[in-house]
Design a protein around this nucleic acid. Structure first.
Length: 462
RNA sequence: GACCCUAUCGUCUAGUGGUCUAGGACACCGCCCUUUCACGGCGGUAACCCGGGUUCGAACCCCGGUAGGGUCGCCA
């Protein structure tokens, strides 16, 4: 026995054990994250195990999605599958890491339980002789939980560990794997708390010490209801497809059910690793707030290097049906660069910058703004500006800005009086990238054409 | 129905008996900055679920309600 007063094993081993029945749920992602953080904080080992015992619901695609989601989030595992192929060589010595490959291991334990009369056969299934006493569940988040029997369990506390079709059930395989894989801390969703009494008894029957438990609260919808597949934000796939910044998603997840205890919100992973620990995990469920995630995402987006930002932006633009290939590379880059630091989500870029990639006649003016800005009294000033543009050489952001200022001064109007109608003329909107830069990118011909069209409208509105 | 967990602004949270006329962030509102928007800055609205105790003193401790969530499967 060590002299360590907390009896913390030398090497901590934790695991994330998803069942491949669909995408990676945001709650699952956070469970994975908390396990990962604990492993990294303690210098321990993070194991990924695929619990694919339900052939009716498991799919290969789901396995691949889980692995790619984990990788996207940056949650690397020290042991586990290297690919979605269950027969491929894994990383780590305690595999296989797919439960579907571990039948022999389960069978030997089942035989032992049967031989010791700790389990028995009934109707072709095998049932475990469960205690009739309450079970104390020591939990690092919830404290000691005194799990009494429910009415149903009072009637028959024993439960099935092997189905009549010969397949072992979750409770059994989960415990055997944690035992065989030397898992020291089980960090999982609170939905497993009640069932932990079964697991503790199973460990005992198998002649093993049970691991330490930490049941973390669940993530609920904004209205407090349970998050299901349909709910926006529930699937990690959404974040990958919509071009979220993985660091932002991770940062947000850290703040759900855990807190650095000071006023920090935006934290990099290393900062979190340094101070993350199990006892500070909150005990109550948290509601998912897309607004806050998006806000955080905007902060990370603004800090991205231009290369990464361009890639994200290009993908988003292509996804929304814009054929970037028909534009010069420099033009596309300049257009994208003019949106940098402006968006909270890259997926907003379509609405924000679509005018760059439309034919002038496709740009639709916002009706309300058009009625307000494209009026006859703006005709003279804007045509004066048009003439100034016409004579401008070179035609760039700097010279354009000069033309705005000098024209405004000559006419005795505010720059804004010229800026707003021109922005509408060129982009169709009242918001967007820096007008001077956008005008340079669009080029003189296009801009003068847009302005002329707006001048016609002013006369038409008269 | 039984059993378990939980309860601070709309949301995420800080707070572990006095320093709380309860702090921060998102969202919202106002002002400033500004070529629009966003950013940034300043300010504002907004919370201790209810009822009993314990105590000189309770958001913090205890009990009871209530509410939300979870579990009771030959699903995981």
């Amino acid at each position: 026995m060590s002299t360590n007063p907390y009896h913390i094993p030398m090497s901590i081993r934790v695991r994330f054990a998803p069942s491949p029945t669909g995408y990676l749920h945001i709650g699952g992602a956070r469970t994975a994250l908390f396990n990962w953080l604990y492993a990294r904080h303690t210098g321990g080992t993070f194991v990924l195990r695929i619990e694919d015992t339900d052939d009716a619901r498991n799919t290969q695609e789901a396995v691949d999605v889980i692995l790619s989601s984990m990788r996207w989030l940056g949650l690397d595992w020290d042991e586990g599958p290297t690919t979605g192929d269950a027969s491929a060589a894994p990383k780590g010595d305690l595999g296989p890491y797919f439960q579907s490959q571990r039948r022999d291991i389960y069978q030997s334990h089942i035989d032992k339980l049967l031989a010791a009369d700790k389990a028995y056969e009934q109707d072709g299934a095998i049932k475990f002789r469960m205690t009739r006493e309450p079970v104390i569940i020591p939990d690092m988040v919830c404290g000691d939980v005194n799990r009494k029997l429910t009415a149903r369990e009072e009637a028959d506390p024993d439960f099935v560990i092997v189905r009549s079709d010969g397949k072992p059930v979750f409770h059994l395989v989960n415990v055997i794997d944690d035992l065989e894989m030397g898992i020291t801390h089980v960090i999982r969703g609170e939905d497993h708390l009640s069932n932990t009494s079964k697991h503790i008894q199973l460990f005992k029957a198998l002649g093993a010490e049970c691991p330490k438990y930490a049941h973390i609260p669940l993530i609920l919808n904004g209205d407090g209801s349970k998050m299901s597949k349909r709910d926006r934000g529930a699937s990690m796939t959404t974040y990958m497809e919509e071009g979220f910044v993985p660091e932002a998603v991770i940062n947000y997840l850290c703040l759900l059910g855990w807190s650095p205890k000071d006023d920090r919100q935006k934290m990099n992973l290393q900062e979190v690793i340094d101070i993350f620990d199990l006892p500070q995990i909150l005990r109550h469920n948290a509601r998912f707030d897309m607004d806050k995630l998006v806000s955080l995402n905007g902060q990370y987006l603004a800090e991205l290097d231009s290369e990464t930002y361009r890639t994200l932006a290009e993908n988003s633009l292509k996804q929304s049906g814009i054929t970037l290939e028909s534009f010069p590379t420099e033009y596309v880059q300049a257009a994208i660069d003019s949106t940098a630091g402006k968006l909270k989500q890259v997926s907003e870029i379509k609405d924000y910058a679509v005018f760059y990639f439309q034919n002038p006649e496709e740009v639709e003016w916002d009706a309300e703004a058009s009625a307000k800005l494209l009026v006859m009294e703006n005709h003279a000033p804007i045509s004066a500006l048009r003439d100034a543009f016409d004579a401008l050489e070179p035609f760039n952001a700097e010279s354009v800005q000069g033309a705005f200022k000098s024209t405004a001064k000559e006419l005795g109007v505010k720059v804004g009086a010229l800026v707003n109608p021109v922005r509408l003329a060129c982009t169709g909107k009242t918001t967007g990238p820096s007008l001077y830069h956008l005008i340079e990118i669009l080029g003189k011909d296009r801009v003068i054409g847009d302005i002329n069209k707006a001048l016609d409208r002013m006369q038409g509105n008269a």
